[in-house]
Design a binder for these strands. Structure first.
Length: 407
DNA sequence: AAAAAAC
């Protein structure tokens, strides 16, 4: 469908044209008319499906049509700082022909960034995109007026709950007027999310787009491999072919640093990114990766959700994410829009159980690839292998050993 | 099981 047909008109439509979007994605086709009707909405969709534009376009259009400036009209809450920045940038692009201001409100910056945010909040930026902690910090200073907010959007709702943002979320929502339109986006729809939706939404419409299915454009493969063989395989992969843009995911920050150094030693332009770095470093690394000045981004799951970068050739899971849904998010960084992508996953003995859960979630077997001969034999795939090693002794284990607390 | 997020 065309954006015109779902109710988007100039000047918002001009921004859509300028960005080169021609047809709506399924989530946009379903969600935009509902949002324009000012209804509450719960939508099940991953990023890469055009989700952000699905809520930004109708929200910007409503703000423009009410022509009521000088207030904070919309509040978008997201789980990570980089996502806040990215959505802010998308507003700059999509809203180029609309007189709408926006500000990304997130922590980690210097005193200047606090002041910039404070100023924009005081002035009443039309759309505020915030991470929870920093939003609350500003609200505590009592100069932010959210009483005119007409659109509240909760993005990556499942991740927000995973990260323990429930209380923060409720705190923020206390400042939002009752009659405000509320939209909730989530990649998955577990009972916890349903409960939250019941709690914060008012007779919501529901839209669901084929979930937890990675794009067909992504060629997925897995290597059964011992930890000691992983370096050799990384070496093999990066020497086989020159790649412009690769993300290597690991679960631990310390491992991310280590592997980034290791890959750099191969003569590849690699850099780590995780929450342990200074925010300015995070932003410059990400920018360099977007500009292809850095070719390999070694990352924790801070990068696994929402981040939309064009032209990523390959995703490597150096380990298997513990949560199967995270696998779908990680590999979803490649194969975006109509591009093709490759996703390799390294599976060691302890990862096998989690890996089989991933295959169950996505409903298909991921092709097992033989290790190159010079690396040797990896472990044999055993889907029942649990992700923890049974510790010596009986199954009841440590409980019996625990001493009663003194006092 | 770790990660993320406020000074």
């Amino acid at each position: 469908m065309k954006f015109k047909e779902v109710g988007i008109h100039p000047p918002v439509l001009d921004g859509v044209d300028a960005m080169g979007f021609e047809n709506t994605t399924p989530i946009q086709e379903k969600a935009i008319p509902i949002i324009l009707e000012k209804k509450d909405l719960i939508a099940c969709a991953q990023t890469g499906t055009g989700k952000t534009a699905a809520f930004l376009l109708p929200t910007m259009q409503q703000i423009h049509d009410q022509a009521d400036h000088g207030n904070i009209d919309a509040l978008v809450v997201v789980p990570t700082r980089e996502l806040a920045i990215q959505i802010d940038q998308q507003i700059q692009g999509l809203g180029y022909f609309v007189d709408i201001s926006s500000v990304a409100v997130y922590g980690g910056g210097d005193g200047v960034s606090w002041e910039v945010q404070k100023k924009a909040l005081l002035k009443g930026a039309n759309i505020v995109i915030a991470t929870p902690g920093r939003m609350i910090a500003h609200l505590n200073q009592e100069y932010v007026d959210l009483s005119k907010v007409k659109h509240f959007i909760l993005d990556e709702a499942d991740r927000m709950l995973d990260m323990g943002f429930y209380d923060d979320l409720k705190k923020i929502m206390k400042f939002i007027p009752k009659d405000c339109q509320r939209l909730m986006f989530s990649a998955t729809m577990p009972p916890k999310i349903r409960t939250l939706a019941k709690e914060i939404l008012n007779e919501p419409e529901e839209v669901s787009i084929a979930i937890s299915k990675p794009s067909e454009n992504i060629l997925q493969g897995a290597f059964m491999i011992h930890d000691g063989q992983k370096s050799a395989l990384i070496h093999h992969i990066f020497s086989a072919k020159k790649m412009d843009s690769v993300i290597v995911f690991l679960s631990r920050k310390s491992e991310v640093d280590k592997i980034a150094r290791e890959i750099s030693k191969l003569g590849v332009n690699a850099a780590p990114i995780h929450s342990g770095l200074e925010q300015s470093k995070r932003e410059s690394v990400l920018q360099d990766f977007i500009n292809k000045k850095i070719n390999v981004l070694v990352a924790t799951d801070v990068m696994s959700r929402g981040i939309d970068i064009k032209g990523i050739d390959m995703v490597i899971n150096y380990n298997v994410p513990g949560d199967a849904a995270d696998y779908v998010h990680r590999i979803g960084r490649t194969g975006r829009a109509d591009a093709n992508g490759v996703a390799f996953t390294f599976v060691n003995e302890e990862d096998m159980y989690n890996f089989s859960n991933i295959e169950t979630l996505i409903g298909k077997e991921i092709q097992k690839i033989r290790l190159p001969e010079h690396i040797g034999e990896g472990p044999v795939y055993n889907p029942k292998q649990r992700s923890f090693k049974p510790r010596g002794g009986s199954s009841g284990g440590s409980k019996g050993k625990r001493r009663p607390p003194k006092k």
